[in-house]
């Protein structure tokens, strides 16, 4: 069974038809990269997977999105429970104006975990998972804003991991970071793959080629093609894909 499955999804911002008939599937414990020029709908698609677009007035969805075989847009699906299972990391590091510890503990606390020992344990493991522990272990009480951009982004990943999701959505997570921080996060992706299904939106062709198992190319709100990353980058089926990855447009 596929972990995430999208069937004939059409999505509208008011009158604007943003996604046209998207059908694709992702297996568990894989990394799927979504590529395409700006405005092609890849971020919109990503935000459908944890119902983040619900927050925008006047949006409408047709079709089905299944995670673990369940339609996440079903009336009986609770968006808050869904988001616990589907973590998200944003384009710019967006820690809360709280301490490093509190940032990671936030998701646990809002989900009703009050046992201090459990919280502490999860915070420590999550920070270790993102290889940030050695850098912050002495200043967990300090404000998250004292960290560098790359550290903040890893903290945001730790924050998402702390609530123990099974899917991790990443919306251009390294676009605001320097090359060294970027490579640290890419290394991290390989390790996280064992436990999580990862969907990553990226503008960086090399990143998609390096870090992902599968790649989906979006253009003008349509899914042009999706295949193994190797195939997409060596012998794509579609002319448009080839033009894009070879840098002829976009």
């Amino acid at each position: 069974m596929h972990k995430i499955e999208t069937k004939n999804v059409n999505f509208f911002y008011g009158e604007n038809h943003a996604l046209h008939d998207i059908s694709l599937a992702m297996k568990a414990n894989t990394i799927t990269a979504l590529i395409g020029p700006s405005g092609c709908g890849k971020s919109t698609y990503l935000r459908l997977l944890n119902r983040m677009n619900d927050l925008i007035d006047g949006t409408r969805l047709e079709g089905e999105i299944l995670i673990d075989g369940e339609n996440i847009y079903d009336k009986n699906t609770n968006a808050y429970d869904l988001r616990k299972n589907v973590g998200m990391v944003f384009q710019k590091p967006n820690p809360f104006p709280k301490s490093i510890f509190e940032n990671v503990a936030y998701g646990l606390k809002v989900n009703g975990i009050t046992d201090k020992a459990v919280i502490e344990e999860r915070v420590h493991t999550s920070i270790q998972q993102v290889a940030l522990w050695d850098e912050v272990k002495d200043k967990l009480k300090k404000s998250a804003f004292e960290l560098s951009g790359g550290q903040q982004q890893r903290l945001c990943i730790a924050r998402a991991l702390a609530v123990q999701p099974s899917v991790l959505l990443m919306d251009e997570p390294t676009s605001a970071l320097d090359p060294i921080s970027t490579s640290k996060i890419e290394e991290l992706l390989f390790e996280l793959k064992n436990k999580y299904t990862i969907v990553i939106v990226t503008h960086n062709m090399q990143q998609a080629a390096r870090a992902s198992d599968n790649t989906a190319f979006f253009y003008m709100g349509r899914l042009i093609e999706m295949d193994k990353t190797k195939t997409i980058f060596t012998k794509p089926n579609q002319k448009q894909t080839e033009d894009y990855i070879t840098g002829r447009f976009g």
Binding site: D81, M88, F90, V110, A160
Partner: peptide, 14 residues
């Protein structure tokens, strides 16, 4: 900041 609110909601906060 919208990013701050989205971060909270994305963690399952109501």
């Amino acid at each position: 900041p919208r990013a701050m609110k989205e971060a909270s909601l994305a963690l399952g906060a109501s």
